[in-house]
Design a binder for these strands. Sequence first.
DNA 1: TATGAATGAGACTTCATTCAT
DNA 2: GATGAATGAAGTCTCATTCAT
Lengths: 224, 224, 224, 224
Amino acid sequence: MGRSKRSKSAKVRRKPVQARSVRRYEKIIDVAALMFAEHGFEATTMEGIAAVAETSIGSLYQFFPNKREVFRAVAERCIERSAQAFAELFSEAEEDETVDPPAGADEPQWARMIDDAVEVFSRLHGQEPSFQAVLANVQLYEDYAEADEAMLRSFVGVIEGLIERWAPALPRPRRHVVAIMLVQTTTMILVASTRETPEIARDMLLELRVMLRRYLAPYVREAM
Amino acid sequence: MGRSKRSKSAKVRRKPVQARSVRRYEKIIDVAALMFAEHGFEATTMEGIAAVAETSIGSLYQFFPNKREVFRAVAERCIERSAQAFAELFSEAEEDETVDPPAGADEPQWARMIDDAVEVFSRLHGQEPSFQAVLANVQLYEDYAEADEAMLRSFVGVIEGLIERWAPALPRPRRHVVAIMLVQTTTMILVASTRETPEIARDMLLELRVMLRRYLAPYVREAM
Amino acid sequence: MGRSKRSKSAKVRRKPVQARSVRRYEKIIDVAALMFAEHGFEATTMEGIAAVAETSIGSLYQFFPNKREVFRAVAERCIERSAQAFAELFSEAEEDETVDPPAGADEPQWARMIDDAVEVFSRLHGQEPSFQAVLANVQLYEDYAEADEAMLRSFVGVIEGLIERWAPALPRPRRHVVAIMLVQTTTMILVASTRETPEIARDMLLELRVMLRRYLAPYVREAM
Amino acid sequence: MGRSKRSKSAKVRRKPVQARSVRRYEKIIDVAALMFAEHGFEATTMEGIAAVAETSIGSLYQFFPNKREVFRAVAERCIERSAQAFAELFSEAEEDETVDPPAGADEPQWARMIDDAVEVFSRLHGQEPSFQAVLANVQLYEDYAEADEAMLRSFVGVIEGLIERWAPALPRPRRHVVAIMLVQTTTMILVASTRETPEIARDMLLELRVMLRRYLAPYVREAM
DNA sequence: TATGAATGAGACTTCATTCAT
DNA sequence: GATGAATGAAGTCTCATTCAT
């Protein structure tokens, strides 16, 4: 959100414009996302991507100058999709706010929104390979931090916006940290949950909501 | 010449006994931990480890049959050091309990213990490269999950023990999930904090304590 | 970088179709045959093959997934060439039979055929590096028996056919053993002869014919 | 036979004299023979030899300057044992000659001697690992031809002696070639037989005798 | 533009041999 | 002399990237 799509040049060698090219470009990213998510960055080979995307290695390199840029494109795709999902969440929230005043709901609106946010992350994680790809390859190392960073920053930006609405009294820097906490906790618990049995994974998601609510409740209350 | 048949792989090929060997063995693990933490498993090369450890590639392979085993050794080292650190935490806690009844402390004992636990993790993370190495290489992919898994399981075990003391009413399965939440949240926030500025990193640790307290407080209260 | 997972090994990785590729593929086999024959399987290195074949190690591995397969290809080439040579022998024999009845020949036809067969083997051995390569690497050891086995079996099959014509009374199992004797004796004497001086080598070939005739004569006579 | 034991210096680093050393030296050769025979020269490692011989790699190198010399020693051992076996054959033969004149035996003496010679080779092959070791590693390649050569030459010498007795009319150079034929055929058939089923292997040995008799018979007859 | 063959740096691993204790 | 730790050259194989067609 509020983040330009692509600024540095030479990242994408040939910006696809023709319909066929666009399709091919999209397919590469789809395939790459799946493979990065499934096998990791290192174990995913350019040849493999090309093969599964039913393209040639040569064409692959016509779209992307190197492997890293493929990953970056996947991350970008992830940001787009996430932004979209969050945008929907926002708009729904606004509707709720106007249409449905917090009457006799036994749950405060902000709490429901946490659930919604977790739900959005969860759905992204479950359905958007690029999301898994990026999260599964969060690495601090040298280079490809960049791409993940971008994605996480974008999440943080969104969440900061939400917090601002619920807890406007929270000073800006604090708000930033809280947003980071929320995003990191949520994404990492999602990732970690895939390493557990389905039952435990489900319970972890439930606990995640509990945790986030308890964490945020005082901040929201203060705000009132 | 070259390779041939045979590869029994006795896990640790030569168990170091002489002082010099032990030093070398330890140094390899130290160096490997640092490099795995810094650059990741894949980007760390055996040749690199040997060079930094000021030994030869041949010696390296006399201690470890392959790179995976080096990592496993690092993970083992990490588990040992962690267990040690937690053992100290436990023993201190017991002293506290007996020596110093919760007199005029404006903080309940369990809360202080959370701080202590976070402190332990934090210290491990800051001072024990093997800890960073393992955490930074948590991967879902096929093979090298093993080592991390072992470590995280061991943490979860420890924390479950603590929770049992604070919130004995919490049913066992729930307790397990809560322990996972605590461990995952703590470790991942620690890792994530290294990607931020020092100030934000510090604030994140503070918020982590806040979050964990707020999360656990109701469980502890229920228990009373 | 380095190696990772994955090693499907499709035996022949890239089946050469274009003229240039075919040339390269053929050259690799030629060179490999020469080197295997000259230095043996173990002492022949992939890098060496690539260098002499004036290609890169990478290209070599695009054709063959490993050294064993290079050898297998050499063996296959050898079988082909041998089959071809024997086919010619057979067809000539048939012509002889029809065109030229054993009129005033002072040598029985089967004896001439032995000479011809030895001649074929001899020519193969002298001119077909793949033949030498395979024979020189007949080994009992575990793995690379396979390729030689195949070749020797194919020879035995051919020879069994010849014997059947000369000595149809010889029971089938005996015939098999006799064929093995002929093939082994002939090939091994050929190989052994290269370790002697040219004169002795020549004499060995002469003696080989003598030996084979004397050995077979009674079987053929019985058959009449 | 008639071949000095060891001439070139520096082949054996330390000639063992003390009883313990001799035992160790012998054991190394035994073990090496077994391993060369079983796995081949290349696949047999110095460390492996040392381990199985219950010695240290250091001691191994005190007896032999390098792997090749170990093989050479095995070959030498083989020659010794073979010479011994043939010496027995000779002496028996002489006894036969004097004690038992070729009276009503339905088999000429020379034919029985062929059987005996084959029997000697066969027993060596079955019971003397060094024999198998050398035969299984007959290679033309560069270096280690030497050792096998020596052994085969020594066999040829012995057999030439026998032929001289049976067929004294055969001119010397011819005799040499015939001896080579006999030795090569016998040894190679023995080796080849191990690649077949036991039944076929047995039949091959029978056929070998048939072949050698038929081959030699005319030479012997001529001689009379 | 699309293709895929070609390249070669570089990773892992083995093992003959040396050398310090 | 005996031991076995240390060494490093050399070999196999992978895969990102280039380039000719």
